[in-house]
Simulated scan of single mutants.
Amino acid sequence: MPFVHFLKNYFSTNKKHGSRDRKQIAQLCYCWFRLGHACRDMVAEERLLLALYLCSDEPNPLLAALHEEYNEKASLPLNEKLSSLRLNIFPWTDMLSEGIDAEAFSASHLVQPDLFLRIRPGYKKSIIRKLEQLAIPFNIEFENTLRLPNGFKVEDHFELNKEVVVQDLNSQRIGEMIDLVATDILSKEDAVVWDCCAASGGKTMLAFDRMPGMTFTVTDIRSSILQNLFQRFKQAGIYSYDGFVADLSLSSAKQIGEKYNLLPLQDLIIADVPCTGSGTWSRNPEQLYYFNASSINEYSALQKKIISNAIPKLLPGGYFLYITCSVFRNENEENVQFLQDKFNLELISSRTLKGYDQKADTMFSALLKSRL
């Protein structure tokens, strides 16, 4: 269970906590998790105060009462706080994808990411006008990406999925990969796109807005996931799609099911595969705290099964977009090499989308093409 839901359940069954108590308990828990694998042997109270100090950017009443020295230094930049400490927050730096700054990435777990929205086509002026009227601080990143402070209640001010989509900065940048092939795909009559691990459908909606009018197929392993996705599509005004349950980790086409077998060859397959989620741990720090490195190889093997069942549905000359929110080489570059070696795909572009210096998630994407 994600910790945010655990905490909500805890507070609902423990009514004695007032709003200030709930806020402080949540802050302390998240600070504890953000220290990751550092100081595991430290006395719990000392570790908690150290975590609160590192995660605070201004003086804190609790620090003032329990650790005056920390409180006096709370406003210092994070790099200055860390300079005198030897903390092993993220101990798997030798397994990182190419180009990731291990020290900066490790430190980013102490900082809560910002909230990002993607403005859907036709709504930019009205969205900006409303934010200005609300006097909400915001920045425009790229053409249609909004950066907002965490805690902003999106659903209170905008129509979710119709006007804006809650989507991380680098998740939105996947659109740059789609743009590389959009003209070619749109030039084809009756071109089709398959999002084979659709989940909440964010990448499908992104592709739809980049390639309006395209016909999509969406699949995932549970019907409940797809039902939620279909509701999002309805809110977004997307109707040109088909969807069905398909577990691509199964060993044979017969096991995956009849609808999979009847699926026509695709011009573009989007594979945002299940992964460790290690690029999102600054947003979900409990996953960093409890992570076991043995799962990296487990996820890598699962990803190979999924893409091995997806590739047979790729049209000759079609495109395969591989995506993870992982920072581990085994889930990223290794699987891109697997795609090239086993399926003779041509690599067009691969990118590690670094979010650790942007208060955003870190992601990996690779665009490949099936040889004719």
Rank of each mutant, 00 (worst) to 15 (best):
I323S: 01
S295H: 08
S308M: 03
I127A: 01
A246G: 06
A26H: 13
L148H: 06
L115P: 01
L248I: 03
S75T: 10
L248A: 04
N161Q: 09
V327T: 06
D156S: 06
L186F: 11
A65I: 06
A253Q: 09
H67T: 08
R34I: 08
T352C: 09
C196Y: 01
R329G: 12
N335I: 01
Y322G: 07
K369F: 03
R118K: 04
R351M: 12
E141Q: 13
N88M: 13
D168T: 14
E331C: 03
P137M: 07
I136G: 05
I307T: 06
I311Y: 01
M205K: 00
N14W: 11
I270D: 03
A135S: 15
A64P: 07
S295K: 10
V4E: 14
N139E: 15
P121Y: 00
G202Y: 00
S240R: 15
D242K: 10
L52T: 03
Q112M: 11
C275N: 10
L49T: 04
F244W: 04
L206N: 05
D101S: 02
N144W: 02
L265D: 14
C196I: 07
Y322A: 06
S300R: 07
E258H: 14
L229R: 05
V154D: 05
L50G: 04
G277S: 04
E346H: 12
S282L: 05
I323Y: 05
M211K: 07
L347E: 02
R20M: 12
D209N: 01
K8F: 11
P91R: 02
K162A: 12
E298Y: 10
E159Y: 15
A26F: 12
